[in-house]
Simulated assay, not measured.
Amino acid sequence: MFTGIVETTGFVKELNDNKENFEVTIQVNDHPTFLSDCQIGDSIACSGICLTVIEFDLKDNWFKVGISLETLRRTTIEKMWTKIGDTINLERAMGTGNQRFGGHYVQGHVDTIAEVVSAEQEGDSVNFKYKLRDLENVKYIVEKGFITVDGASLTVTFVDDDEGIFGVSMINHTRSVLCKRDIGTFVNIEVDVTGKMIAKQVELYMKKFTK
């Protein structure tokens, strides 16, 4: 479980893109303690994708993850993690104790991807619009609701249900933490799981009256 508050970024250090054994080694940027309590089997959100650590090095500050075919189908990995140096947003799983909860409940289970279609400056913020690859996911996106974009917890500012386009607004601080994504590139999208759960229950309930 994650909060969608990206802690730092990393980049592809090594890449084995054989689909039978797809593995990525990620070098952590500017966060020397990011892996300080890491264990084999831990989950780390990598641009919003919950991935399992299969190897790591505290001294050199890198970790390796294995990636399933299902993850490849759902995410931007084959589009955006294609060469050494490609950038990745990073967040460790939620801890215990007196940790503040800053974003929203994020599972790291990516639903689909979206293309960055526009970015317009407005004061200190930039208003981004994204177009979903899989239009059916737009029914879970509501104005002022939560959404996770490349691992970042954001508030939806605009939805076009017919076109499968939605918008968010990012302040300068948020943009400075995240990896830059240009217009025409792709991001991972996780819709709010609450909406999916409600939709499923309504669907099952309505089936009782259509038999």
Rank of each mutant, 00 (worst) to 15 (best):
residue 129 K to H: 12
residue 89 N to R: 04
residue 131 K to H: 10
residue 131 K to E: 02
residue 116 V to N: 11
residue 134 D to G: 02
residue 128 F to N: 00
residue 142 V to M: 10
residue 62 W to K: 03
residue 121 Q to E: 14
residue 132 L to Y: 03
residue 63 F to I: 01
residue 102 G to C: 05
residue 59 K to H: 13
residue 58 L to K: 13
residue 108 G to H: 01
residue 72 L to R: 07
residue 117 V to N: 01
residue 91 E to L: 07
residue 100 R to P: 14
residue 83 K to W: 02
residue 127 N to H: 13
residue 74 R to I: 04
residue 81 W to H: 00
residue 140 Y to E: 08
residue 129 K to C: 10
residue 140 Y to T: 06
residue 118 S to Y: 10
residue 73 R to L: 10
residue 96 T to Y: 14
residue 142 V to R: 10
residue 58 L to P: 06
residue 137 N to S: 01
residue 137 N to K: 10
residue 109 H to Q: 05
residue 126 V to S: 05
residue 76 T to I: 15
residue 140 Y to W: 01
residue 127 N to P: 05
residue 82 T to D: 07
residue 100 R to F: 15
residue 84 I to F: 00
residue 86 D to S: 11
residue 109 H to I: 03
residue 87 T to N: 06
residue 112 T to L: 00
residue 63 F to A: 00
residue 124 D to W: 06
residue 144 K to Q: 06
residue 65 V to D: 01
residue 65 V to K: 04
residue 120 E to F: 14
residue 72 L to M: 08
residue 62 W to T: 03
residue 110 V to L: 09
residue 78 E to Y: 07
residue 86 D to Q: 03
residue 122 E to N: 15
residue 120 E to G: 10
residue 60 D to L: 13
residue 65 V to L: 05
residue 140 Y to G: 00
residue 108 G to F: 00
residue 81 W to D: 03
residue 124 D to Y: 08
residue 135 L to V: 08
residue 103 G to F: 05
residue 103 G to L: 04
residue 89 N to Q: 06
residue 129 K to V: 08
residue 100 R to L: 15
residue 127 N to I: 12
residue 125 S to V: 07
residue 129 K to T: 13
residue 77 I to L: 04
residue 90 L to F: 00
residue 65 V to N: 01
residue 100 R to I: 15
residue 59 K to I: 12
residue 101 F to Q: 09
residue 130 Y to P: 06
residue 61 N to Q: 09
residue 124 D to K: 10
residue 130 Y to L: 10
residue 59 K to G: 12
residue 71 T to D: 06
residue 67 I to P: 05
residue 130 Y to W: 11
residue 58 L to Q: 12
residue 59 K to N: 15
residue 79 K to A: 13
residue 60 D to F: 09
residue 71 T to L: 09
residue 144 K to E: 08
residue 66 G to C: 13
residue 131 K to Q: 04
residue 103 G to N: 07
residue 76 T to N: 05
residue 70 E to P: 09
residue 96 T to D: 13
residue 115 E to T: 04
residue 126 V to Y: 06
residue 87 T to D: 09
residue 64 K to W: 08
residue 122 E to H: 14
residue 115 E to V: 01
residue 127 N to E: 05
residue 106 V to Y: 08
residue 68 S to R: 08
residue 111 D to G: 09
residue 76 T to Y: 07
residue 85 G to S: 01
residue 67 I to T: 02
residue 93 A to C: 10
residue 71 T to A: 04
residue 122 E to R: 14
residue 101 F to L: 15
residue 107 Q to L: 15
residue 143 E to P: 13
residue 113 I to W: 11
residue 132 L to A: 03
residue 74 R to N: 12
residue 87 T to A: 14
